[in-house]
Simulated assay, not measured.
Amino acid sequence: MADSRFFANNGPFALGEIATRVGAELGSNADAARRIEDIASLDAAGPADLSFLDNPKYADAFAATAAGACLVHPRFVARAPAGLALLVSKEPYRAYALACQLFYPEEAHGADTYGEPTIVHPRAVVHPSASIGAGATIEPGAVIGAGVEIGSGTVVGANAVVSKGCTIGRNCFVGPNVTISHAHIGDRVMLHPGVAIGQDGFGFAMGFPRHEKVPQLGRVIIQDDVEIGANTTVDRGAGPDTVIGEGTKIDNLVQIGHNVQTGRGCVIVSQTGVSGSAKLGDFVVLAAQVGVTGHLTINSGVQVAARSAVIHDVPAGQKYGGVPARPIREWQRELVAIKNLSKRRKPDEPADDAS
């Protein structure tokens, strides 16, 4: 259950309204007028709370929950305890996300402060030529450079730095200690603490007697509804721009190299590295600790398993895994074959329990 010191609850809401907003159907015993006050896990929820079940591992907790209502897949309806009001959905986790956004809109989208006074803390440093939109907030220690444009409702956190010429759209969140340079950022973008955007890409003409630095003359373009996790870095392009596509979600501790382009709705999980000039299509998923070689293309809809190394182009819609990454069924068969091979022993090899 959310701590009210940190999270503002927008409830209560009637079950019927919740069902409409999340696209669920009310079960036969659900009273559409019943008021629900909060969201909670199955084991912590009480009679005024809404919970959800998506993973079969928690079916026992579902059968014992004291929640007043629950979002659930049709296949689990018969296991519901007596008196539990059901909101039935084929995608209960997505419905849960929408319910959380209903109860806690500021956590999902940031505060909508358009039309409210702009707040610039006295200890922030804002260049006179910068433009700060209505309802924006600039927190203590933040530095806003010359010619910067910040849209309405955007929050720039403590000690963040937005360098000259950068633009940030509306209702964005720029967390504490974020640094932004050479970048244009769309609307509703969330940059968590410590993110670094727009620093030099790693470009050198290597050779004797020294490696010559290649000036990085591109930008970073971050489209609408992108979220980037803490301490992730996105290098600016060397000439072409680095582009993060609309709706892409990037986890903590990810490295995006110069000239990388991602499509819409990509998911890039923690400790992944995408080398320079790689291109990702729409809705590509890179699981944790994936390495992507530069100058290749991962086409739309591809999913890459954790700790894989992608060294060649990947066709659209494929699932890949391994080092080097290959079609996932092929990789899994190889793992099984190696495991079976390790169990074999030569005829003259002594058994493990031989003296």
Rank of each mutant, 00 (worst) to 15 (best):
D3V: 07
R5E: 13
F6P: 00
F6K: 01
F6E: 01
G11L: 09
P12Y: 03
P12C: 09
A19V: 04
R21H: 14
R21D: 05
A30M: 12
I36W: 00
E37V: 07
I39K: 00
D43Q: 14
A48K: 12
L50Q: 01
L53A: 05
K57F: 08
K57H: 13
K57Y: 03
Y58G: 10
A61N: 05
F62K: 01
F62D: 05
A63S: 15
A64S: 15
T65Y: 09
A66C: 06
A67F: 03
A67Q: 04
A69I: 05
C70T: 06
C70N: 03
R75V: 13
A78N: 13
A85D: 11
A85Q: 14
K90N: 15
P92Y: 05
Y93A: 05
Y93T: 02
A95S: 15
Y96K: 03
Y96V: 00
A97G: 09
A99C: 11
E107A: 14
D112F: 15
E116D: 05
T118E: 08
I119E: 08
H121S: 11
P122R: 13
H127Q: 12
P140V: 10
V143W: 09
I144A: 03
A146P: 00
G157P: 08
V161D: 03
V162P: 06
S163V: 01
S163Q: 14
C166W: 06
I168W: 10
F173W: 06
T179H: 08
A183V: 11
A183P: 06
G186D: 04
R188H: 15
M190P: 00
P193L: 08
G198W: 04
G198K: 04
D200N: 15
D200E: 15
G203I: 12
G203L: 11
F204E: 12
A205P: 04
M206F: 02
G207M: 08
F208D: 13
R210D: 12
H211W: 14
K213V: 13
Q216K: 07
D224Y: 09
G229W: 08
A230Y: 01
T232D: 06
T233P: 02
D235T: 09
T242I: 07
T242G: 03
G245E: 00
G245C: 08
G247N: 10
D251E: 07
N252P: 02
Q255H: 14
I256M: 13
H258W: 09
V260Y: 02
V260M: 06
V260S: 02
C266P: 04
V267E: 00
I268H: 06
V274A: 02
V274C: 07
G276S: 12
G276M: 07
K279A: 13
D282K: 10
V285S: 09
V290H: 02
T293E: 12
G294E: 09
H295E: 05
N299S: 14
S300W: 03
S300V: 02
S300Q: 09
G301T: 12
G301S: 11
V302S: 01
V302Y: 03
V302G: 01
A305Q: 12
A305C: 01
R307I: 00
P315L: 09
G317K: 06
G317D: 10
Q318W: 00
Y320K: 03
G321D: 08
G322P: 07
R329M: 09
E330V: 14
W331T: 05
L335E: 09
R344G: 07
R344L: 14
